[in-house]
Every structure is written in structure tokens, then in C-alpha cells.
Design a protein around this nucleic acid. Structure first.
Length: 570
RNA sequence: UGGGGCGUCGCCAAGUGGUAAGGCACCGGGUUUUGAUCCCGGUAUGCGCAGGUUCGAAUCCUGCCGCCCCAGCCA
């Protein structure tokens, strides 16, 4: 990037984090070097909110010719598991980012962190406290009242050192002792009121095993880990803003090899979605969804299984921008990003998800007519595939209506429509069962309209998709809607639980048919079912014997809008 | 009632004293063998509110109001 591009007068388009990074470079900080990191705690699966952070951190490194590390923030052995460290790496790679040989763990630094804790004690900046957790809380004061010094605060340095060594040696039970920084119990920022640095936890750690029974807190581990790795910009979310003074205090009081700068941005919220790991974990554990990768989950693995592409997710993350304003992004923007990505490249096929028979009564018995269907009208180089037409078809149940309203372009008795690629057909009658439900639509076709055009210039407004009953392959379709009925799932009464707002219609399973060419192609990438939406083979449940498709997103549907507006106006 | 942040169109978001970018959504219209895509056009006399400074303010000053975060030995 040239000086012109980074100058203070030409920063239009740069978000505030990039602006800060550019200014630091211009000021010559870190010799112009830019080094970021993505620091997940392995206590859950990554979600779309993490994607925002990943795109930001890896994106900034890329933009400024730097690199980005992956570092697991694994300082709390009681909540962290290897399943999560594996899934996290998997998801980041799938998004298309590469940390190369820079995979780290905060636990890699436990020995160094321990030495730095000793350093703080020797310098008189930390002490071992014997107050209980409850007492510490009482002594801490409140936001409006200052706290009080612990009676152990001014104990001799040698005594704290000895106790700290014995904490490590395992002489004490969980919670009996704790190492605290000695800062200021009257500080207006509660994080500066002698914060905890090391606590006793006799727990097995997923990487260090039983080597340790004391573990550093987030505050004592994060900034120093950044410094060890030479991180120049430590980008995190807004709730850590209050921790920045402590982050800087520790960097100032320790002989660390570099001085990273913490910058905070607003985390992502999405309408109709919960994003907290705690809540997502509950959805999984209590069986409201089928796992972390359930296609309704906002997790990266859920979105992938749903049919979202890395490109769509990344485009979405760039489009929403980065700021410090708490915001909730419209789910429609995520959906738009997927359609935008898929439209030019997803192959088109026909599928009928809710089939009703359509019989062409004047079709020559046993005749099969083959048509060439374009794989993608947006891309002529995508080629074509063949689709068989017969007099025995399936069409979408919702494409027929008794006494249709104005502007209905589809089937109804006396109506003529085009069957995509094939012929014009006119509906002459329907067959019903005892309940009056339509079981078969009867039509006649016009042989002159082969290919879908009428030589007499006759126009038809509607074009329907269809599948031959003699050739169609059975398939299951899983249609998804938002997991929650309310735009803000957390906007509930004091006595309600967020799970009360779960959408009972979040998943609808339908049995239908697909055209034979698709069954043979078995593509792994999402396809577009004409007029329906983008679908992908379910990575878990679909097999050649039993095809299962997940609906990633519908197509924009202006007919649905007409219906909706009409209803609202009545 | 302490400290730290944030308030620009329905949802995001540029803008950093010279007279309100862009995207999504929405509303019109055109093209169309997907009511899709694509293409045109429309939508903030206004930047939380009230004062003030200035030739000129979303941008500076003052005072209010609203929302978010902090009293884990979670991150």
C-alpha cells in the first residue's frame, strides 16, 4: 500500500480499525509491521459472529502485508475440549484462511506466564490473597463505592512468593488461595481493583494434562500472549474495552518483548438468531436442534451444511462493515449474499417438492420427448443437460389454484401455462378425492408449442417447472426457516426462557422428485431448483439411495409479496 | 448515584467545518421460457434532543436524553 493510500486524507472506505492500523504504520510503529491473531476459546463451535472477526483479522493482515495467527485461548481447563479445537481449525480452513505454521495455544506460554507472575510478586505488584471468593466480592465494592484492601495485600513479598510456589505444587484446594495484581481497590474501573491473575484449578487440561493445577486468568494470559507472538494489533469485541487499562498495565509492568495495541469493535448480532455460545450450547444439549452443524444453526458448520459458501459468508462480513455501534444486521442481508454468490454459478435443475400429478390427456401413449436444459442462463459456458418429458408429470401443488385471484399466472381450470423447455398446456379439469383435495390435474398440450414458443405469437404469463413421473427420482427436501419467531429472540418477558421463542416451523420435511440428470450428477455444490431456491445435498444424511436436499435459501419471490400486500390491504 | 462506550433513512454504514456515499429492505417501471437474474428510477430539507460558535455545523462548544458494557477465582 502506498503512502498516498494510507495518508490521513485518503481513508474513505477504511473502517475505523484499518484506519488505526494505517495510522500506526504511518507513524512508524512496529517498523510498519502488521500482525494480528484470531483467539477463540475452544469451548464451542464457531459461528457467523466469529466469521466477522476472522474476516477482520485475516483481512487486515492481508491488506497490510502482514500475517494472522490462530491462537487458542485455553486458560480454563474446565470448559475446553479437543472436539472444539478440531472443529474450529476445520471451519477457519473451510472459510479459506491459512495460519500456516502459526498455530498457538495460550497454554504454550504457561511456563513464561508463571515466571512473569513471579516477577510481578517480586516487584511488589502482585500478592497471594487468602480471602474466599465471597469475601473478595464483598471487598471489591460496587460501581459507585470503592473497594477495601484485603488484609493480605501487604504481606511480605517472600511470603507471597512462597505461597505462589506452593499453589503450583498442589498444596492447596481449589479456591483456597489466589494471586492478585496490586493496583488500586478504589479505582473507578472495577477491573483495576486488584484483579485475579492465577487461580487454583485441579483439573485436567486438554493439552498440558495434569502438569498444572493453577491457571492464569484471561486478563493475565491474553495481552502477554499477544506480546510473545509479536502481535501489533489485538482486535477484540466491545465488552473488553473495560479491560484495556488492565491489558496495558500488565504490558507496562512486565518485561514483555513487544507492545501490542488492543482495539475493540462491536460484535455481530443477526435478526431471528441467538449468537451466544451458552445459548447455542443449550440448543444442542437440550435437543432443540440436531447438533452444532444443524442447518438451522448460525454456526459455520451449520451454515456450510445448509448450503452457504465461504464466499457468501465472507462477502456478508465485508458488507456489514466494522464499527463500535451495537447493531443487529437483517438476516435478509446474509441471504442476499448467498443468492448473489450462487446465482452466477449454481447449476439449474427441476425438482418438485410437493408433487401433484399432471396428466397430458392428448399426449401420445408411451412417447418420450427429450429437451436440452441450460445449466445456467447466467453462464453459457456452463453447458446443458437433457430432461425427459412425458404425458405423466408431477408439478408443484401450489402451482394450481381453484378460482384464482387477479394476476395469477399459474394453473387453474381454463388457464394455459408453459412447462419450462417443453410445451404450452391448458388445464381442462382436475380430479379430486373424497375430501375434495386435488389428486390430479388434467391438461391438453399444444404440439405447435414444442420448445416453449407459440408460432401464432400467443403469449403465456406463467412458466412452471415439472418432472416426468416415469423418470423422476425420489428425494427428500428439508425446508428451513428462522429458528426463532421473533426478530430479537432475547426480547422476552422476565419469566420466559429464550427457547420459548423457538419457531415450530423452522424445519419442514417434504418428499418429492428430482429430474434424473441431477441424480446422476450428484454435485457437492449447491444447485438451484428452478423457481424454488438454492439447495444442497445434505452432507450427513444424503446418499445415492436416499437423496436428501437442504434448502439453503429461497429465490426472491415477488408473488409471495403480492399475496402478502393484498392480505395486509384487506 | 461510579467508570467505559455508542447514537447518520426500516437494517447496516461512509462522512472528521463547505452544504448527507454505498449496500440490504421497500416502492415504481423495462427486459425475461425461473413471478428468479439483469436494467432503469424513487425513498434522510435531514444526521438523538436543545442551545451556542461560525459566512457556513452530522462534523466544534455547552447542557440534556436514550441504549450497551463492567461488581466471575468465565472469556
Amino acid at each position: 500500500m502506498s503512502h498516498e493510500e494510507t495518508s490521513a486524507t485518503d481513508r474513505t472506505g477504511l473502517d475505523f480499525v484499518r484506519t488505526a492500523v494505517a495510522e500506526d504504520r504511518a507513524a512508524g510503529k512496529n517498523d510498519g509491521r502488521v500482525h494480528t491473531r484470531f483467539p477463540p476459546e475452544p469451548n464451542g463451535y464457531l459461528h457467523i459472529g466469529h466469521a466477522k472477526s476472522i474476516v477482520l483479522n485475516f483481512g487486515i493482515a492481508e491488506d497490510f502485508g502482514g500475517v494472522c495467527n490462530l491462537r487458542f485461548d485455553d486458560t480454563n481447563p474446565t470448559r475446553e475440549e479437543v472436539e472444539y479445537v478440531d472443529s474450529i481449525q476445520n471451519d477457519i480452513r473451510w472459510l479459506g484462511y491459512d495460519w500456516e505454521d502459526r498455530l498457538f495455544y495460550a497454554s504454550d506460554y504457561f511456563e513464561q506466564l508463571y515466571a512473569w507472575a513471579e516477577h510481578l510478586i517480586r516487584e511488589g505488584h502482585a500478592y497471594v490473597d487468602e480471602l474466599s471468593a465471597e469475601e473478595i466480592r464483598e471487598y471489591r465494592g460496587t460501581p459507585t463505592e470503592p473497594g477495601r484492601n484485603s488484609p493480605w495485600r501487604d504481606r511480605p513479598i517472600e511470603e507471597s512468593l512462597d505461597l505462589f510456589h506452593r499453589m503450583r505444587a498442589g498444596e492447596f484446594a481449589d479456591g483456597a488461595l489466589i494471586l492478585r495484581a496490586k493496583i488500586d481497590m478504589a479505582h473507578p474501573n472495577i477491573n483495576m481493583r486488584d484483579p485475579a491473575l492465577y487461580r487454583i484449578r485441579h483439573a485436567h487440561h486438554h493439552r498440558t494434562g495434569d502438569t498444572w493445577c493453577i491457571y492464569p486468568t484471561y486478563d493475565f494470559a491474553h495481552g502477554q500472549s499477544d506480546a510473545i507472538e509479536g502481535i501489533t494489533h489485538s482486535i477484540c469485541t466491545l465488552e473488553f474495552e473495560n479491560h484495556r487499562p488492565l491489558y496495558e498495565w500488565l504490558i507496562d509492568h512486565l518485561p514483555v518483548p513487544s507492545t501490542p495495541r488492543q482495539i475493540e469493535f462491536a460484535r455481530l448480532n443477526l435478526t431471528y438468531t441467538v449468537m451466544s455460545k451458552r445459548k447455542l450450547l443449550r440448543l444442542v444439549q437440550e435437543g432443540f436442534v440436531d447438533g452444532w452443524d444443524d442447518p438451522r444453526m448460525p454456526t459455520i458448520s451449520g451454515l456450510r451444511r445448509r448450503g452457504y459458501t465461504p464466499e457468501a459468508i465472507k462477502a456478508f462480513c465485508r458488507r456489514i462493515g466494522v464499527s463500535k455501534t451495537n447493531s443487529t444486521v437483517d438476516l435478509a442481508l446474509l441471504e442476499f449474499s448467498l443468492r448473489e454468490d450462487l446465482n452466477p454459478r449454481a447449476h439449474r435443475y427441476m425438482a418438485v417438492t410437493d408433487p401433484v400429478k399432471l396428466t397430458v390427456t392428448n399426449w401420445p401413449e408411451g412417447q418420450v420427448d427429450w429437451f436440452e436444459a441450460e445449466n445456467n442462463p447466467e453462464d453459457p459456458t456452463a453447458g446443458t443437460h437433457s430432461v425427459p418429458f412425458t404425458g405423466s408429470l408431477y408439478v408443484e401443488r401450489e402451482d394450481y389454484m381453484d378460482d384464482p385471484p387477479r394476476k395469477w399466472f399459474r394453473l387453474g381450470i381454463g388457464r394455459e401455462v408453459r412447462l419450462k423447455y417443453a410445451y404450452f398446456v391448458s388445464c381442462t379439469d382436475v380430479v379430486r378425492d373424497a375430501d375434495g383435495t386435488v389428486t390430479e390435474i388434467l391438461c391438453t398440450y399444444d404440439p405447435e408449442t414444442r420448445g416453449g414458443d407459440s408460432p401464432d405469437g400467443r403469449k403465456v404469463k406463467g412458466t412452471l417447472h415439472w418432472v416426468s413421473r416415469d423418470h423422476g427420482v425420489p428425494a427428500e427436501f428439508r425446508l428451513y426457516e428462522p429458528l426463532f419467531t421473533q426478530e430479537d429472540p432475547d426480547d422476552i418477558g422476565p419469566d420466559a426462557d429464550f427457547t420459548d421463542g423457538l419457531n415450530p416451523q423452522s424445519r419442514t420435511v417434504l418428499q418429492g422428485v428430482i429430474e434424473p440428470a441431477l441424480a446422476e450428477a450428484a454435485p457437492e455444490n449447491p444447485v438451484q431448483f428452478l423457481r424454488l431456491g438454492y439447495y444442497v445435498n445434505d452432507a450427513r444424511d444424503s446418499s445415492p439411495d436416499r437423496l436428501v436436499f437442504n434448502r439453503a435459501v429461497t429465490l426472491k419471490d415477488s408473488w409471495a409479496r403480492v399475496v402478502r400486500n393484498r392480505r395486509e390491504n384487506e
